[in-house]
Amino acid sequence: MKAAIELRQVVKRYGATTALHGVTLEIGDNEFFTLLGPSGCGKTTLLRMIAGFEDVTEGQILLFGEDISGREPNRRPVNTVFQQYALFPHMSVIDNVAFGLKMKGMDLASRRQRAGRMLEMVHLLAFADRLPSQLSGGQQQRVALARALAPEPKVLLLDEPLSALDLKLRQAMRVELKQLQEETGITFVFVTHDQEEALTMSDRIAVMSAGRVQQVGPPREIYEAPVNRFVADFIGETNLLEVEVEAVEGGMARVVLPGGHRIACPAAAGTAGRHHLSIRPERLAIASQGGEIEATVERVVYLGTDLQIITRLDGGAAFDVRLQNSARVAVPAPGTRVGLHLEEGAARLLAD
C-alpha cells in the first residue's frame, strides 16, 4: 500500500506539557483512516499538525514522501472539515463551494462547473442557489464537504464533523461519507471519540490515549483482538475479568477462571500470574446450570433488538451478557443463579 501520510516519531509539547509522545503512523493512499480516542488524547492535535495549524516539536510529517513538517497550511495539498462548518452566511451554496477555487485563481465558468459537480456528488445540486441558513444541519455538513473536496486535495482531514448532528442523521452520514471517500479516491483522515463511527466507516483505526497510539488495525481486529485493557474497554463493551494465568506460549494462554474452570485462549501478551481477560457480552450464553462461570442475575434491561443481562459473580464483580431479543429466548428473572458459557475464542488475555 502506497503511503499518503507518514508520521515519524512526532512529538508535540506545549511548554512543560507533552501532548504527543513520539507518534509513528503510516496512512495509505485512498484509505479511510480514523484517529479514535477520548477527549484530550491528542487526536485533534495530530490532525492539526498534519494540516499545518500546529507546529511539530520533534519528528517529521511526510506527504507522499515529501517532508511538509515546516510548510505553511496554504501550501499543503490538504483540506480540513471542522466540527463547525463555517459556511459564509451571505453566499449561496454554490458560491460557498466555489470559494476555494476562486482563491486559487480559477475562472468563473470553470469553478462553477466544478462546484456544480461537487454538489451533485453530495446530492445538493438542487439547493445551489440557497443560503446556508435555508439548509438543515446535515445539508450544511454536505456543503462543507463539497467545498473541501472541490480543490481536489490529496488528503481530506475531518475533525468530528458529525458530532453536531442527531443520531439518525449521523448514521445516514456515515454511509454517505464512506461512499464519498470511495468515489473520490482521496485519503480521508477522520477524528472521532465515537467508537461506532470508527468501526462502521474506517479501513483502519488508530486508538489513542494520553498522546500515544495504543493499537492500529482494521475495525474487526481492533474489536476482536484488543492488545490491552484500554483498547478492550474503550472499543464497544467488554467484561474485564481478573484471572490466574498458568502459562503463555505461542500466542495462547492457559488460565484459571473464578470457580476453578481452566480454558485456553488467545493472548495479546503476558506471563504467568494475575492478568485480565476481555470477554465481549455478546459472546456469552446463559444456562440454568453448568457453564464456565457462575453468576447471579441482578437486572434485565430491554434494549429493543437486544437484552442486557446484568449479572454478578460470586466474587462481587459485575458481568454483562447481551442476548438478541427473541420470543425464543428464555429470560432469567433477577435473583436467578445461572451458568455463563463462553463461546469458543470469546476470551482474550490482555497485556495490562
Rank of each mutant, 00 (worst) to 15 (best):
G259V: 00
I279L: 13
A269Y: 05
E282L: 02
H275A: 14
T238S: 05
G270C: 07
R280N: 01
A268G: 05
S278T: 13
E282F: 07
R283S: 12
A295V: 05
E237S: 08
G251A: 00
R328S: 09
L241W: 05
L303E: 15
A247F: 09
P334M: 01
G273P: 10
G335E: 00
D233K: 01
L240D: 06
G251D: 01
L240F: 09
D306W: 13
V256Q: 13
S326T: 07
Q308R: 13
H276C: 09
T238R: 04
R312T: 08
E294S: 13
V245F: 01
A327Y: 00
H276L: 14
E249G: 03
Q308V: 05
A287N: 10
Y302K: 12
R262H: 09
V331M: 02
D320M: 02
R299Y: 07
I293L: 15
T311Y: 07
A330L: 00
I235N: 00
H261E: 15
P266Y: 07
G315D: 15
G315Q: 15
G290E: 00
D320W: 10
D233Y: 04
A264K: 15
Q308S: 08
E249C: 04
E246A: 14
L307P: 06
A272I: 06
A269D: 10
N325E: 10
V297F: 05
P281D: 09
L257Y: 06
V256S: 11
A269P: 02
A272T: 09
E292Q: 15
I263C: 12
L240W: 04
I309Y: 08
H276P: 03
V245M: 01
A295I: 03
G335N: 00
G250T: 02
V243A: 02
A287V: 15
T311Q: 14
R312Q: 07
D233N: 07
P332Y: 05
L284Q: 11
R254T: 12
D314V: 11
I309R: 08
E246I: 14
E298K: 13
L284T: 06
N239Y: 04
T296P: 09
R328N: 09
I279K: 04
I293Y: 11
G335M: 00
G291S: 13
A267C: 06
G273W: 01
V243T: 15
I293T: 13
C265W: 04
E246P: 04
E298A: 14
G304E: 14
D320T: 05
V301C: 10
H275E: 08
C265Y: 03
I263H: 10
P258G: 08
D233S: 07
I310T: 13
M252G: 02
S326Q: 05
N325S: 10
L277W: 08
E294Y: 09
E246K: 13
G291R: 12
G273M: 00
T336S: 13
E292D: 14
L240R: 03
A295K: 04
T305C: 05
A318K: 03
E246G: 07
V329A: 02
G270Y: 11
L307V: 03
G304M: 15
L303T: 10
E242P: 15
P266M: 06
T336L: 07
